[in-house]
C-alpha cells in the first residue's frame, strides 16, 4: 500500500481580491505615503534629491529599529513603555565605559548587554511575578532613567573612541545610505520573516489573540513574553548605540518622549493595541510615512512640535476614518 503524504498549507487569510487589498490598512498607508511625497516635493525643491532623501532616513531609523520589536511585543498582548529610558541608561553606561578608556568593541558590548539586561528584567518581572507589563514598564521607565541620572546627574559624556563614532556616522553605497537605515532594513527583513513565515510568528499571533488558550495548546507563553521584552531591550540598546555614536553625546535626558512616539508608529502601522493583530508591511510603511512627514516639515522649517501634532492627529484619524467611512477601510478584522 502506498501512503500518500499530503502537505497542507493553511493560508494567513482567505484569498483576497484586488478590491480587498485596496481596502487594507497597508493600502491606506501607502496612499498617505504617496500623498506626503507628492506634497513635499511640491513644497520644497530639495525634497526629491536622492542624497537628501537618503540622509533623512537617519532620523527615523533609530526609532524604527525599536518599532519593529515593539510591534512584536504589542502583537503578543504586552507593551513596553521603558524603551526610551533603556536608551538613556545604555547610552550613559556606554559613555561611562568610553570614559574608562574602553575600546569600540567593549563600548558596543556594554550598550547591547545593558539594553538586553534591562529588557530581561522587564520580562522577568512580567513573567515570574505575573505582573501587567504596562505597570512594570512605567516603573522601570522611572527606574532606568533614574539610574542614568544617578550616574551622570546633569552632565554629559562627550568623548567616544573614533571607531565607535564611525558606527553611527558611516555612509554606504557611495556615501549615500546612512548605516542606521541599513541596520533598520536588515532588521525589518528579519522581523518580517520571523513574524509571517515561522512557526514562532504564528504562535505569537495565537498568544496575542488568547494567551490562556495558547497556554493550553502547549505554547510556552511566558517564555515568549520574556523573549519579546528582552528583544525589545536589545533593540533599544542597539538604537542607543546608533544614536550615541551619531551625536557623540550621552546624557540621561536623551530620547525624551520616544516611547510614546514609537508606540504611536506601531499602532499607526495597524498593530492592534489589544494584541493578536498586525502586519510588518504596515508597520514599516508607518515608519516611512512618519519619517517622510517629519523630513518634509524640516525642509519647510516647521518646528518639531507641529510635527508631533501631526503625528498624534494621524494616529487618531487613521482609527476614526474607518468608523466614519462606514468601515470602508477596515479590511478584514
Amino acid at each position: 500500500m502506498e501512503q500518500v503524504i499530503k502537505s497542507y498549507e493553511i493560508p494567513d487569510s482567505l484569498p483576497q481580491g484586488l478590491l480587498d487589498r485596496l481596502r487594507s490598512r497597508e493600502a491606506l498607508l501607502l496612499l498617505l505615503l504617496g500623498l506626503t511625497v507628492l506634497i513635499n516635493s511640491l513644497l520644497s525643491p530639495y525634497f526629491l534629491d536622492i542624497y537628501n532623501l537618503a540622509d533623512s532616513t537617519q532620523n527615523f531609523s533609530e526609532k524604527g529599529i525599536i518599532v519593529l520589536s515593539m510591534a512584536l511585543v504589542i502583537i503578543g498582548q504586552e507593551i513596553d513603555i521603558s524603551v526610551a529610558s533603556i536608551i538613556a541608561l545604555s547610552g550613559v553606561l556606554m559613555g561611562a565605559a568610553a570614559s574608562f578608556g574602553c575600546g569600540t568593541g567593549t563600548v558596543v558590548l556594554v550598550g547591547l548587554a545593558s539594553g538586553t539586561l534591562a529588557g530581561a528584567l522587564n520580562g522577568l518581572l512580567v513573567t515570574r511575578l505575573d505582573l501587567p507589563s504596562i505597570i512594570v514598564t512605567i516603573g522601570t521607565m522611572s527606574l532606568y532613567r533614574g539610574i542614568a541620572f544617578i550616574i551622570l546627574g546633569d552632565r554629559a559624556y562627550t568623548s567616544f573612541p573614533d571607531g565607535f563614532q564611525a558606527i553611527g556616522q558611516a555612509y554606504f553605497f557611495d556615501d549615500l545610505v546612512p548605516s542606521q537605515f541599513i541596520v533598520f532594513v536588515m532588521l525589518a527583513a528579519g522581523v518580517w520573516y520571523f513574524l509571517h513565515h515561522t512557526v514562532y510568528g504564528r504562535r505569537l499571533f495565537a498568544i496575542g489573540n488568547n494567551p490562556t488558550g495558547a497556554k493550553y495548546s502547549g505554547i510556552r507563553v511566558d517564555n515568549y513574553r520574556l523573549g519579546l521584552l528582552t528583544l525589545n531591550g536589545f533593540m533599544s540598546g542597539l538604537a542607543a548605540i546608533m544614536l550615541v555614536s551619531r551625536i557623540a553625546t550621552a546624557r540621561p535626558n536623551m530620547a525624551p518622549g520616544w516611547e510614546l512616539e514609537i508606540i504611536t508608529m506601531t499602532i499607526l502601522g495597524g498593530v492592534s493595541i489589544f494584541g493578536g493583530m498586525g502586519k510588518m508591511p504596515g508597520v514599516i510603511l508607518a515608519v516611512l510615512l512618519i519619517g517622510m512627514v517629519q523630513f518634509g516639515m524640516q525642509l519647510n522649517n516647521i518646528p518639531g512640535v507641529i510635527m508631533s501634532i501631526f503625528t498624534g492627529a494621524l494616529l487618531v484619524v487613521s482609527l476614526v476614518l474607518p468608523i466614519l467611512l462606514g468601515k470602508f477601510f477596515s479590511g478584514r478584522k
Binding site: 498624534g312 494616529l315 487618531v316 482609527l319
Partner: peptide, 10 residues
Amino acid sequence: IVVSLGAMTV
C-alpha cells in the same frame, strides 16, 4: 490608550 496617546501630543 490609543486616543489619549495621539491626543496628548496634539
